[in-house]
C-alpha cells in the first residue's frame, strides 16, 4: 500500500526519530511511504488557542497537500483528531483525505497486531486524552504493545486522567498544568517502568520534561519507536 506520512510540525522539528520509526515500521511491513514535502502543520495550536483565522490557511494547505492519497498516516492522536473532527468544521466542504492515526492504520487498515517488533524493556502506556476521547483508540495501542517480543507492559494507575499538557494551556496555566503533570509522573514512577510510551509526543514532552527535571530514571518514547524496534536495529 502507498501511504502518505503527515508527520506533524512538532515531530518534524523536534522528534524526527518518530518519523523515521514510522517509515521503518511501514516499510518493514511491505508498504511504500511517501512524505509530501509541502506539509507543515494541522493548525491545532491556532484553533485551540482561539486563532481560528490564522488556522484556516493551514487547514486548506493540508487538504491541498494530501489530496488524492488513499491513506494518510499521522503519528499523533491529537493532530489526527484535529484533522478528522475539526478540519471539516473550520473549512466546510473541503475534500478530506482518509486520515488514520498510526495505531488505527496498523490495526484497522493493515490488519496487523504483531508488527514483528522486539523491545526487551518494561513499558507503561499513557492513553492521551485525544487518543482516548476524541479518536476512541481503545485498546489498539496496548494490543500492539502486548504483541512486541520482550516487552513487559505495566499498567498505569489513573491512566485516563489528563497529563496537563493541553497545548498553550501548559504555559497560560503553567501552575495547574505542572501540578497535573506531577501527579501523572508520580503514577508513572509508581509502575517502575523503564519507558513511558504514548501516541502523542506533545504530551510526552510535557511529562518527559517533568520527569527529566526530577531526574527520574524513565525514558519517554513515542509508540512508533517501540513498534519499529527490532533485534538488529534496536530503539
Amino acid at each position: 500500500m502507498r501511504i502518505a506520512l503527515f508527520l506533524t510540525c512538532v515531530n518534524d522539528t523536534m522528534f524526527p526519530g518518530t518519523g523515521k520509526a514510522v517509515v521503518k515500521l511501514l516499510r518493514r511491513l511491505g508498504h511504500t511511504v511517501v512524505f509530501p514535502e509541502e506539509q507543515t502543520c494541522c493548525g491545532q495550536m491556532h484553533l485551540n488557542s482561539g486563532y481560528r483565522r490564522e488556522c484556516e490557511p493551514l487547514v486548506r494547505s493540508f487538504a491541498a497537500t494530501f489530496a488524492g492519497f488513499d491513506a494518510v498516516v499521522v503519528p499523533s492522536a491529537s493532530c489526527a483528531g484535529m484533522i478528522r473532527e475539526l478540519h471539516p468544521e473550520v473549512v466546510p466542504g473541503l475534500a478530506a483525505p482518509p486520515v488514520h492515526e498510526l495505531t488505527e492504520l496498523l490495526v484497522d487498515v493493515l490488519g496487523v497486531e504483531d508488527v514483528g517488533a522486539y523491545f526487551p524493556h518494561t513499558v507503561t502506556y499513557h492513553p492521551t486524552c485525544h487518543s482516548l476521547r476524541m479518536l476512541g483508540l481503545g485498546d489498539r495501542p496496548t494490543r500492539l504493545l502486548r504483541a512486541v517480543r520482550g516487552l513487559e507492559l505495566l499498567e498505569l494507575p489513573g491512566a485516563e486522567e489528563c497529563c496537563g499538557f493541553g497545548g498553550t494551556f501548559a504555559m497560560k496555566n503553567a501552575g495547574v498544568s505542572a501540578a497535573m503533570g506531577a501527579d501523572k509522573a508520580a503514577n508513572v514512577r509508581r509502575t517502575g517502568a523503564a519507558v513511558l510510551a504514548a501516541a502523542d509526543n506533545s504530551c510526552l514532552v510535557h511529562l518527559g520534561g517533568g520527569l527529566s527535571r526530577d531526574g527520574a530514571p524513565v525514558r519517554v518514547m513515542h509508540l512508533a519507536e517501540i513498534l519499529a524496534s527490532t533485534e538488529e536495529d534496536p530503539a
Partner: peptide
C-alpha cells in the same frame, strides 16, 4: 513558564 518546572530536549541534529 514552561521551563520553571519542565526541561525540554535539545533540538535534534536535523529535522525529519
Amino acid at each position: 513558564a514552561w521551563s520553571r518546572t519542565r526541561d525540554v530536549p535539545s533540538p535534534p541534529p536535523q529535522s525529519f
